[in-house]
C-alpha cells in the first residue's frame, strides 16, 4: 500500500550536471534564485527560463520529469494568477466592467508571479533530480562548515538529514506491516468522520513511534560502538573536489545575472510593448 510512494526523486544519468560538485550546485541554485528575483522585465525572464531549459538539456533528465514538480501547484498557480490579475491596479486600465478591473500592471504582475514560481520549483527539482540525497547533505555540510566557528552544528545537521532520509523507506515498510497487523485485528481505518479516523490511526502511530525510538537508540549505540563522536577529525571516502567544470558553471551563472541586470537597466521592452499595444484598449475605452 504505502510502498508505492517514491521519495527522493534522484534521476540517475551520466551528465555534466550530475558530475558537478554538490556545493557548486547548491551555490548555483542560490544564484539562480537571485536571478529569478531581480528580473523585473517579462522578456528578460525568457533569458532565465532559457537558461533553465539549457541546464535541463545538459542534465539529460527528460523535461517532463522536471515539469512534474509543477503538478502539486496546479491549484495554486491559477489562483495566484487570478488574484494578481484582479487585485493589482497600476498602469493603464484594459478592462473595466462592474467590479472587475484589469490593468496592464495586473497582467504583468500575474504573469510574473506564475513564471517565478515555475522557475523556482523547476530549478530546485533539477537539483534534487541530479544530486543524490547523500551528496546533497554532504555538500550542505561543507558549505555550512565555515559557520562552525560560531558553533553552528553543520556536521550534526547533515548527519541528521542523512539519517532521516535513510530511514524513510524503512518507516514506510514498517507502517505497512503495522497497518496489516491491526487490520487483521479488525481495525477499521476507512469509515467514520475525520475525528473517528484520526483516532483509528492511533493503533498504527503508537507502535510506529515506539519502534522508531527503540531503533534510534540502537542506531546511536551502533554508531558509538564504531567510535563515532561527531564530525571532528572525520575523513571521507570520497573527497569532494572543486574542478574546472564547477568554476565554469559558476562563471556562466554569474554571466546570466550580469546579463539580466544590464539588459533591464538599458532596455524597457515591457514598456515598449505596452506602448505598442496601447491603441487596443484606448480605442475601446
Amino acid at each position: 500500500m504505502l510502498k508505492d510512494i517514491t521519495l527522493g526523486q534522484y534521476f540517475p544519468a551520466d551528465s555534466v550536471v550530475h558530475r558537478l560538485d554538490p556545493r557548486t550546485k547548491l551555490v548555483l541554485l542560490i544564484m539562480y534564485i537571485v536571478a529569478v528575483f531581480i528580473v523585473k522585465d517579462i522578456w528578460v525572464f525568457g533569458l532565465v527560463l532559457g537558461f533553465m531549459l539549457f541546464m535541463t538539456a545538459m542534465s539529460k533528465v527528460p523535461l517532463n520529469y522536471v515539469l512534474k514538480a509543477i503538478k502539486p501547484m496546479r491549484l495554486l498557480l491559477p489562483l495566484m494568477f487570478l488574484l494578481n490579475l484582479f487585485m493589482i491596479r497600476t498602469g493603464d486600465t484594459i478592462v473595466s466592467w462592474r467590479f472587475i478591473t484589469i490593468t496592464t500592471g495586473g497582467v504583468r504582475q500575474a504573469l510574473f508571479i506564475v513564471l517565478r514560481l515555475i522557475a523556482l520549483v523547476t530549478g530546485a527539482s533539477l537539483l534534487t533530480l541530479t544530486t543524490t540525497p547523500v551528496s546533497l547533505t554532504e555538500g550542505l555540510e561543507r558549505l555550512l562548515s565555515p559557520l562552525k566557528i560560531i558553533k553552528f552544528p553543520a556536521h550534526e545537521l547533515a548527519m541528521m538529514m542523512t539519517i532521516a532520509l535513510r530511514f524513510i523507506p524503512t518507516l514506510l515498510e514498517e507502517a505497512d506491516k503495522i497497518m496489516k497487523a491491526q487490520l487483521a485485528r479488525g481495525a477499521d481505518l476507512e469509515s467514520g468522520n475525520i475525528f473517528k479516523r484520526a483516532k483509528a490511526m492511533l493503533p498504527i502511530l503508537i507502535p510506529l513511534f515506539v519502534n522508531s525510538f527503540r531503533r534510534a537508540e540502537e542506531l546511536a549505540l551502533a554508531m558509538e560502538s564504531r567510535c563515532y563522536h561527531g564530525g571532528e577529525g572525520r575523513t571521507r571516502l570520497k573527497v569532494l573536489k572543486f574542478g574546472w567544470r564547477d568554476l565554469w558553471a559558476i562563471l556562466i551563472m554569474a554571466a546570466l545575472i550580469a546579463a539580466v541586470v544590464i539588459l533591464q537597466s538599458n532596455l524597457d521592452i515591457d514598456g515598449y510593448i505596452i506602448g505598442l499595444l496601447r491603441p487596443l484598449w484606448t480605442r475601446s475605452a
Binding site: 506491516k177 497487523a181 491491526q182 487483521a184 492511533l202 493503533p203 507502535p207 515506539v210 519502534n211
Partner: peptide, 18 residues
Amino acid sequence: GRSLVGMVFQYPDYQLFD
C-alpha cells in the same frame, strides 16, 4: 471472511499499542 481468520505476525512490536 477476515473475522474468521486470526493472524499473528512475527514481531509483537508491530501490534501492541494500548
